[in-house]
Simulated scan of single mutants.
Amino acid sequence: MPSEPVVPRPAATVLLVRDAPAPPPGRAPLQVFLQRRVAEMAFASSMTVFPGGGVDAGDRAGLASWAGPDPTWWGERLACDTELAGALVQAAVRETFEECGVLLATPQLPADLQRHRSDLVARRQTLGQMLAETGLVLRADLLRPWARWITPPAVKRRYDTVFFVALVPDGQEADAHTTEAVEAAWWYPAEALEHWQRGEIELMAPTIRTLQEIAEHPDSAAVLAAADERVVRPVTPEVRREGGKVVVVLPDDPGFQLDVERIVPGGSA
C-alpha cells in the first residue's frame, strides 16, 4: 500500500524588494533579494531562493506589540485559521531578520540589534521576547500577501509556504550574514530568470513563477499595489510524466510547464 503523504509544515518566505538607484539601460528599477542556499541543506540545497523558513513554536505565541492588520485579517487573506496566520506573519518577520538582517519593526532599532539576531538564530530568544525586551513593535502593515504554495504530495519533505512582499525599510540593508546561504544579492527579476535559463543558477518552480510575476512590474510600488489586489489561494504543483520526461505543471496555469531536470538537482521530485 502506498504511504500517506507527509503533512506539509507551515512556512513563510519574503520577497524583499527595492528600487535600484541607477538601473542599467533597458532594466526597470525593481530588484528582489535572493540567496543561494548551502549544499548541505536538507531542503532546496544549492537553490537560489527568497529568504524564509518554517514556522517555529515560538512564532505561535500571541504578540502584544503588533501594528497593522491583525491575525484575523491575515487569516482571511491567506485562507487559513487566525492562529496560523499570526504565526506565519511572525515567521516571515523573524526569518527575514535572521537571514538578511532586515527587521520589520519600529520605532528606533537598538544598537545591539545583532546580538538579538544571534539569539534568535540560536533559539535563545523568541521574536516575542526580543520585541518585549527592546520595546519594538512588529509592523505587519509592512508585509503584503502574494501567494501560497504547497509542496506536491509525492515529496517527502513538504511545506505549505506563504509568500509575502515587503519593501526594505529606509535605513536598513539586507546582508548575507547567514550560515544557510553561500551568497546573497539584489537581482533584477528578469536577470535572475536569464541566469536560470542559462543554467547558471537553480530555481524551484514557485521561485520561477514568482519572479515571472513580479518581473511584469516596473518598480517596488507597483509590486506592492499588485499584492493588495491579489487573491491568495493555495497552489500545489503537479508532477507528471509527459512523453520521455517528468514535468511540473500548475493546475490553474496550463501555459506553465517545467522539466523536472531543470529545477531539481538530479531530477528527483
Rank of each mutant, 00 (worst) to 15 (best):
E83R: 14
A12R: 04
A61T: 10
P21L: 09
V32C: 15
P24Y: 01
P8G: 05
M41S: 15
A91D: 05
A12S: 14
F43A: 12
T13I: 05
S46W: 09
R77P: 00
L78V: 00
V32N: 01
P23L: 10
L16K: 06
E40F: 09
E40R: 14
P8H: 06
F43L: 12
A85W: 02
R9E: 12
D19W: 11
R9L: 12
V6N: 11
A22I: 06
D81T: 02
F33E: 03
L88D: 05
P71F: 05
D59S: 04
G54D: 13
A79F: 00
R18S: 14
P5S: 09
A42E: 14
L84D: 01
L34R: 08
D81E: 13
A57E: 15
D81G: 07
Q35F: 01
T96F: 07
E40I: 04
W74K: 03
P5E: 08
R36E: 15
F43T: 12
F50K: 03
F43N: 08
R60K: 10
A85D: 02
R18N: 12
V38S: 13
A61W: 09
V49G: 00
A91E: 03
G54E: 14
E95S: 15
Q90V: 08
V49M: 15
D19V: 10
F43K: 13
R37T: 06
L16E: 06
A57T: 12
Q35W: 01
L16S: 07
A12F: 04
G75C: 09
R77G: 00
A22S: 13
L30T: 00
G54H: 11
L88E: 07
A79Q: 07
Q35G: 01
P5V: 03
R27Y: 13
P21W: 06
D70H: 04
G62V: 10
A44M: 05
V89M: 02
A85F: 02
T72S: 11
P21S: 11
R60Y: 01
L16G: 05
P69K: 05
L88G: 06
P51A: 09
D81L: 03
E83C: 07
L34K: 10
W66H: 10
R27H: 12
T13K: 07
Q35R: 09
S65Y: 08
C80P: 01
R77L: 01
C80E: 02
V38D: 13
A12E: 03
A44E: 09
V32W: 01
A91C: 09
A92Y: 13
V6H: 12
G52M: 08
A11N: 03
L30I: 00
S45Y: 14
P69D: 04
E83K: 10
D81W: 02
W73A: 12
R94L: 02
A64V: 11
A61C: 08
P8Q: 06
V38Q: 12
